[in-house]
Nucleic acid binder design. Sequence first.
DNA 1: TAATTCCTTACTAATTTACTAGGGATTATA
DNA 2: TATAATCCCTAGTAAATTAGTAAGGAATTA
Lengths: 160, 160
Amino acid sequence: MKLSTKGRYAVTAMMDLAIHDTDGPVTLSDISNCQGISLSYLEQLFAKLRQAGLVDGVRGPGGGYRLGKPPQLISVADIIMAVDESIDSTRCKGNLDCNKGERCLTHHLWNDLSDQLYDFLNEITLSEFIKNPEVRKISQRQDTTASRIANMFPPRSIAS
Amino acid sequence: MKLSTKGRYAVTAMMDLAIHDTDGPVTLSDISNCQGISLSYLEQLFAKLRQAGLVDGVRGPGGGYRLGKPPQLISVADIIMAVDESIDSTRCKGNLDCNKGERCLTHHLWNDLSDQLYDFLNEITLSEFIKNPEVRKISQRQDTTASRIANMFPPRSIAS
DNA sequence: TAATTCCTTACTAATTTACTAGGGATTATA
DNA sequence: TATAATCCCTAGTAAATTAGTAAGGAATTA
């Protein structure tokens, strides 16, 4: 389990998708503008998210990305694992003769802690962020990605 | 909240100190050997841990580091915060006009999540690792840093 | 005094993060 | 069909962080 800005980018981007999932695909350029990350870097992150089955790409005008699964099946841990390659906690691989060949006690403890952290983040799914009524309120108050997409099309084409 | 190998080094090192706290100071060279980290890098990490008041240095032969507070007052979050400078989650600082000047919704959500993560790691203290009976067993089964330190002194000086 | 340890600084190597550039593939719309 | 918008892919590079090397000083024990 590792947690860096890379992981944060992925999580916030996925939050964006989750919140606007019912309003059609979200474009990377929207996320890029909103979060101040370069478009191409986002594309690289989303390549990993796509490989993990967490998002689906929709090409062409009006396209973008949408969630690859129902939001209640996508945990924060899933997202972080997809983009933040985990750290190897086994540095003393028997060779170092650390503590008479036994694996370092602290490594054992670290793994326990790391597992707990994983379980914690695995219980938090994207659906939490949608359900929260306060979140909804904030979401509606803002000029969201969804509404900006909507504005791209003339009223008639939406009504039809 | 950020979590990298750097933070793991610090946490496992502090676990080591906590487990052997009653047996006198733990030297960095012991930790260096056990965990396969360079001595000088450990020294840099411990400089930060010392600044945060999490450890006390004891100079001279037989010296080393010991906990700066009782283990039940040192949380995993404390340790990580001391060495892993936290990430700034506010990239769109109003300038980007993200969502009509409002702070990005996802940043708000991220901060909530980050706070939850902090609270989680802040409730896990070093005393957990000492109390755990299985941990004690493993600790005693191994040639621990403590016993290696003990072996440095002749039996009589321990008895006295 | 000599050895052992912490303590500090400066520099460098390795790795990861983030970005730039260029192009291709797909698709909605005109 | 043409065009534009989007995803998609690769290669390279800049910036930041992580990790290590080197050198020495300060405190303390024996």
